[in-house]
């Protein structure tokens, strides 16, 4: 066996790699954050920090005139802050970074078109569903009649979304392109880079309404899944979950939930929808 003599710089690099690896293994041993009572902290500092979408009308977007974030999700956040009697601070999140932001305590709640599903429920806690929709597609008018028409298509969606996983399951041969958020996927659709954009119908309707040449596109009646939205809360914060849930139920019984829906999805809105759900207590 011949002995390879590494030059000194290589040797030092190998050594630093070894140190790096051992550093990581030390980290593995220690647990990383102390106990936190989010509800108590929120009350103490007098501010509720909520992660919301900032370019997804009508759920959350920056209003051109006021340069403020507004939308259906923001009204939900306002109701929770009001119930707690604290100030509301909005933080823009994307589909991909919302869970890390939540688990690391950068935000107290995530109200950002988040679908409740069992995999996620293992990592975070969810409120009762505050919105109900289903996953569909935006495509060029008249091009798509059945799901088979999209079999080998290029389909745009957002990183880290349930839409991304659902479409990969229902159309395994399609090429799924994940952007940082949905509007970029719509831009790609307009420029012919993808043939369809997929996500929840309520989001699609808002996006379609915003498209400059919207008469050329449509949302065909092809639903691939049901998507109930929940407010996401860090695992194990029962106090906060209870406050959020009671806020939602009170909104339903007082009629405020109806009003908020009507404001963003009513007949005079950019993307009218029917309210087919009621906020109810679930297990």
């Amino acid at each position: 066996m011949t002995c390879i003599q590494f030059p000194s710089k290589v040797q030092s690099k190998i050594q630093f790699l070894v140190v790096f690896v051992s550093l990581i293994s030390i980290l593995t041993g220690i647990s990383l954050a102390a106990h936190a009572d989010v509800l108590g902290d929120v009350k103490k500092k007098g501010t509720l920090v909520v992660g919301v979408k900032d370019s997804l009308p009508p759920f959350g977007y920056v209003d051109e005139k006021s340069r403020d974030i507004v939308g259906y999700d923001i009204d939900m956040a306002k109701a929770v802050a009001k119930k707690l009697g604290v100030k509301l601070e909005l933080k823009p999140v994307t589909s991909a970074n919302r869970f890390p932001m939540l688990s690391e305590g950068n935000v107290d709640l995530v109200i950002a078109t988040t679908t409740k599903n069992p995999e996620r429920a293992a990592q975070v806690d969810f409120s009762h569903a505050y919105f109900l929709t289903g996953q569909k597609f935006i495509v060029a008018k008249g091009k798509v009649k059945t799901l088979q028409d999209l079999d080998t298509a290029r389909i745009g969606t957002a990183k880290g979304s349930t839409s991304e996983k659902n479409v990969a399951t229902s159309l395994p041969k399609a090429k799924v392109l994940s952007y940082d958020d949905y509007p970029q996927a719509v831009l790609a659709l307009q420029q012919g880079k993808v043939q369809a954009v997929t996500t929840d119908e309520a989001i699609l309707a808002g996006l379609l309404a915003k498209m400059p040449n919207k008469d050329k596109y449509e949302i065909p009646d092809l639903k691939i899944s049901d998507e109930p939205y929940g407010i996401a809360i860090k695992k194990g914060e029962k106090g906060l979950v209870d406050v959020v849930n009671s806020t939602l139920l009170e909104m339903e019984s007082s009629g405020d939930a109806d009003k908020v829906f009507a404001q963003w999805f009513g007949p005079n809105s950019a993307a009218p929808l029917k309210r087919t759900f009621k906020i109810t207590a679930e297990k």
Partner: peptide
């Protein structure tokens, strides 16, 4: 810029 781009969808 991406926020404005996402909102207007027509002027990348």
């Amino acid at each position: 810029a991406t926020q404005v781009n996402n909102r207007t969808l027509n002027y990348p």
